[in-house]
Every structure is written in structure tokens, then in C-alpha cells.
Design a protein around this nucleic acid. Sequence first.
DNA 1: AATTCGGGGGA
DNA 2: TCCCCAGAATT
Length: 341
Amino acid sequence: MIEQFFNWYHQEGRSLPWREQPEPYPVFLSEVILQQTRVEQGLAYFHRFMDTFPTVQDLANASEEEVLKLWQGLGYYSRARNLHKAAKHLMEIHQGIFPSNFNELIKIPGVGPYTARAILAFAFSKPEVAADGNIWRVTSRFFGLNNEFPSKKTMELTQELWKDWVVQQPSVFNNAMMDLGSGICTPKQPKCEQCPLQSQCFSFPSGAWVNLPFKEKKTKVKPLTLVYLISKSDGKVLMKKRAENTIWANMYDFPEMIFPSHWNSEMDILEEISKNSRVSTVHSVAKQSFHLLSHRKIQPFFCFVDFVPILQLEREEKWIPLEQIHELPVPKIIESLIATF
DNA sequence: AATTCGGGGGA
DNA sequence: TCCCCAGAATT
């Protein structure tokens, strides 16, 4: 059974750049990029980062802004900030060499239980199951489990259930499980007729896989209206670096006003802006299509305005020359707008 | 234990 | 629309 599974992987598995020569740094980089991100989406970013920052030291010597700029468009930007912190951490604590034990790996910023085990399995050939969403789906269906995921207990159980498999070839096992989960044992309409594990699968005979893995919570999506106040003056635009502990932290956008979602017409926005003492004139109000995040449904408005002559700049606000805007890391929501400047 | 972090692609 | 993707950090 195990042999059959590994053979399937060698024939049907994906060929991915970080699988060729599994050194710690590319493995680590790929794992961070692929957190909650599909391989197809992350692939180009992996190449960009390897080209721009070939070593941990190169990454550590970069500025956070450079890292964020390279990460632009991929989302979950705390990963980029932590990636940068991780490189500095590795240089300071480990002389740029990745540790090969769980307790030290998990101290690296942005490295959690999953990523730590992935590094151990892929880069150090340790018999660890890197239980991501794919592997847990396969596991829950194969053994007929409906535990909560992710949880410490479920992680430990997963280790135990696959220990005779993973010990054979840790790297091959994890890669094979991930490819099985993403290509065969998919959330909907799995291709069971092609599955190398079919004959031993708990869920296949009864079709029990339809309800596995069990999932309880779906995140609530809060609607809101986001009004950007855009002012071009003297070849410059007033922009701001977003604060920590906000969405798109440390990235750049414009002064903003946030409203409950029921203010959603140009008239409403015009009325609200008129109450803003910083704004002297409103040139245009343009309603945009929804911007969807996992936990927000944003109704954006792009409003071109003039600010009052003696404008008191708030912290992190700065007049940016038009030709320098493209150097700044910006969230997706204003990417196309910036491109027209 | 629950929330908060983006953005995209498939059905 | 809804789901969920090689999850981690914070509350």
C-alpha cells in the first residue's frame, strides 16, 4: 500500500522548484508563501523572492518596504513582515543556519507548527507529518475522523496515524499527501476512481467523505464603506503608511474615512465628506466594485479632493511625488488606480 | 477558543 | 454565491 502510494507520487506528483533541491531556505520560503495560498498563485512569487533574495542574509539586509513591495498582491501581509523578521532572527540567533529541531524552528517569526514540521520533513528528512488543510482532508476521510482542525490533539493524532508511512521517506510522504489532497481528494467531487489509497479508504465504500472533514465555523464577513481621499497637487499625492494592527499594515494608501455599509451612494459620501474639516473641495466621487476579503466586504469610493491650504499632516502621512508611487507597497484595492497616475 | 489577518480560483 | 487554499499571531 505504502509502495503503491509512493509510486503514484513519482508518476503523478507535481514537479515544483522547491522540491528539486530541498535546502532549508527555499523550503522555508515556499512554505511561508504557500500558507493559505494555492501553489499556482504563489509560484511566481517564489521565483521573484529567490531571484531578489537568494540567501537568508540577502533577505535580512533588505528593508521591510522592499519585502512588502515584492509581496504586493499576494495578501496576508503579516507573512511578508514576519518573513523579514525571520531572516533577521536567523542571522542573529543562528548565524543564518536553520535549526533542525521543532522547538527552535517554532520560535522563528511566522513559523508555526505546520511550517516547522514541513521544514523538518522536507529539508531535514525528519519523520514529521506537516498536516495542512490538504493532508487533514485526506486523513479525516481515509480514517473516518471528524476531529476539529487544526488543534494540537488532531495534529498529534495525525502524526500517530501515519507514523509507519512517514518514516519511510518523510519528504516523499508529505509531498504525495499534498498532491493527493489538492488533485485527487479534493473538497468537492474527489476523483476516488484515480486514488491510490482507495482500497483502504474508510470513506470510499459508504461515500462518507461528503461530510469530511467536519468544519464548524465560517468567519463572519463584515460589510463596510471605505472612502479614499485622493489629492493630487503640485505633482504629488498625499499618502499614508498604514498603522500596525490594521489591515494592510505598513503598506501605503490614502487618507481614508470609514463608514457603516449603509452609506453607499455618491450622495451619502458627498454629504459625509463635507463634514470633514480637512477637505476644502471635492472634485469627484467614484463608487467602485466590492473588494472582498475573507472577513470584510468593502465598498470602496475613490474621491478626488483638495485639502485645506494649511493642512496639518497626521502621523505617517506624506506627500509622495507621482513618479515615486510605484516604489511603494500598496494593497490590491488601489493597484489599478495607482497605475493611472 | 475565537478573531484577525488577502486575494484568487473553482464549482 | 460559497468554499478553501502547503496557517500564524493575537485576543
